[in-house]
């Protein structure tokens, strides 16, 4: 049975590097995925994710073990990302940066998909990337947490420190904007 996040956090606080390494490995992928979709650059996203892990460790004594570690950590990551965006004074991400960072993803080989399907997936990924990049920052956050990370509205509300109703409203409006953008891009019913 894998060690719980709370137990790893407790061991890390007591000075165990191995425990913190395990925690970092557990959330590295999610952290980089969230960050890369909120900023324009994969390298920057990795730096932000690393900074979030450093900050999380320095505040580990404030982590309430009754709470989900993921929610607590994503809140820190979100704040690190916002700090970065404020420093850069940008609210929208650079599409070129995302696409050059491989946002549309590598060729999906080995899953048994046809070349046509793969080409279509990549085209959809590019269109979706464009649509996400055009969302307001508040909408982009909820979309990434909900549809990329698959978090619940309750968790998202905790991370963003917003009422659940506000998160639902943001999701609703973001979905409408995504739908409009994809329809304009030619993905709507013929």
């Amino acid at each position: 049975m894998p060690t719980s996040d709370a137990e790893l956090a407790r061991q890390a606080l007591a000075g165990s590097q191995a425990a913190y390494h395990a925690l970092v490995e557990r959330y590295a992928s999610s952290a980089v995925n969230i960050a890369v979709r909120l900023v324009s650059d994969r390298a920057v996203a990795e730096e932000l994710a690393q900074e979030a892990f450093v900050r999380a460790f320095s505040r580990l004594n404030t982590y309430d073990q009754e709470r989900k570690f993921s929610s607590w950590f994503f809140q820190i990551l979100r704040n690190v990302t916002i700090d970065h965006l404020r420093r850069r004074r940008v609210d929208t991400v650079s599409l070129d940066g995302l696409l050059s960072a491989g946002y549309a993803g590598p060729a999906d080989e080995g899953r048994g998909t046809s070349p046509d399907d793969e080409a279509e997936r990549r085209a959809l990924a590019a269109a979706l990337t464009t649509a996400i990049s055009q969302l307001r920052h508040e909408f982009r956050e909820v979309v990434v947490l909900k549809y990329v990370e698959g978090l619940s509205v309750d968790d998202i509300a905790g991370i963003l420190d917003l009422p659940e109703g506000t998160v639902k409203t943001h999701l609703y409006r973001a979905r409408k904007e995504l739908a409009a953008a994809l329809t304009t891009a030619g993905w709507g019913p013929a």
Binding site: Y20, H21, V24, V36, E46, Y103, G105, R121, L128
Partner: peptide, 22 residues
């Protein structure tokens, strides 16, 4: 639809570098 976006994997040494930085 979002499944069309494949996950972005962190670099291989990400965890080691992060723990080192900490």
């Amino acid at each position: 639809v979002f499944a069309a976006l494949p996950p972005v994997q962190p670099s291989q040494d990400f965890a080691r570098h992060a723990v080192q930085a900490v």
